[in-house]
């Protein structure tokens, strides 16, 4: 009898999610965005490592600078020495790459492999899931010990993103993002990412916590032997230089 009650309870709970209207799903996405939004300025020290079969590992350290209110982002590589001063600058829809070895800027695309790894701009930038995607619920699934909501997201018209279709697995209890799969337009799976550690910091300007993934593990689904690891070592929410999100600032770092 008890098991029937539990089973019925689970069934109704599952049904409740299965019947989630689209607005509720959008709210779930917006929750992800709001949690990670810094409102004020945001700076993070990041370790990036890519392993590929028969190749030396790519290892980098970089600082992320974000001003979410203006949709601005700078990625500045600080280690190893040969990479020092290289960086990316996002202004509006443009993602610029600067290489101090040649002192030149190059406009890249959303599909740019950051620092030659399988990471993309969006892995370091603010979350814009609710703005960029339309969600639908796939169902409920078990992921390790976690009960998750499995969502399928399709990019909205006119928005350029690295992958037009993504699937998310959110912890039902906490709504933490645990797993993310990204697909090409053809439907081919390109990357699977895991978010095993979430951290939060109280922000004075936001008057709330700013969430960030402690680490992201990315597995390449096309070159199966390739994997990438992003570790967010620390976060600093102090105000940033007003001129930081300019080409001149990034150039000045290596002049």
């Amino acid at each position: 009898m008890r098991s029937i009650i539990i089973a019925s309870g689970l069934f109704f709970a599952a049904s409740a999610y299965a019947q989630l209207p689209k607005e509720e799903l959008v709210k779930l996405l917006a929750e992800q965005d709001v949690r990670q939004s810094a409102t004020g300025d945001y700076k993070s020290l990041v370790y990036l490592e890519q392993s590929e079969k028969d190749k030396a590992d790519v290892v980098r350290e970089l600082i992320i600078y974000r001003r979410d209110a203006d949709d601005k982002l700078v990625l500045l590589f600080t280690k190893p020495k040969s990479e020092e001063g290289k960086g990316y600058l996002r202004l509006d829809k443009n993602l610029w790459l600067y290489d101090p070895n040649v002192g030149k800027w190059e406009r890249t695309t959303e599909r740019e492999r950051i620092g030659g790894t399988n990471s993309r701009r969006q892995d370091f930038d603010e979350s814009r899931l609710a703005i960029e995607f339309d969600p639908e619920l796939v169902g409920e699934e078990k992921l390790g010990k976690f009960d998750t909501l499995h969502l399928k997201l399709t990019v909205k018209e006119g928005i350029d993103v690295a992958y037009p279709i993504i699937e998310l697995w959110l912890d039902k209890a906490t709504h933490n993002l645990l797993k993310r799969q990204e697909f090409a337009l053809s439907g081919r799976l390109a990357r699977t990412s895991y978010y095993p550690k979430w951290q939060k910091i109280f922000s004075e300007s936001k008057k709330a916590d700013v969430w960030f993934p402690g680490e992201i593990r990315i597995f390449d689904e096309i070159e199966k032997s390739n994997k990438t690891m992003i570790i967010f070592k620390s976060v600093d929410l102090s105000p940033l230089d007003a001129n930081l999100f300019t080409k001149a600032w990034l150039e000045s770092k290596s002049r």
């Binding site: 020092e84 010990k145 095993p196 969430w211 600093d236 929410l237």
Partner: peptide, 26 residues
């Protein structure tokens, strides 16, 4: 490995730490 243990995906309260900017790479 990542989601199999009980302590997996705990949300950790953390504190800000000052990140020193790269002064020059020249």
């Amino acid at each position: 490995d990542l989601f199999g243990s009980d302590d997996a995906v705990a949300v950790v309260e953390t504190k800000e730490s000052k990140i020193v900017d790269l002064e020059r790479a020249s």
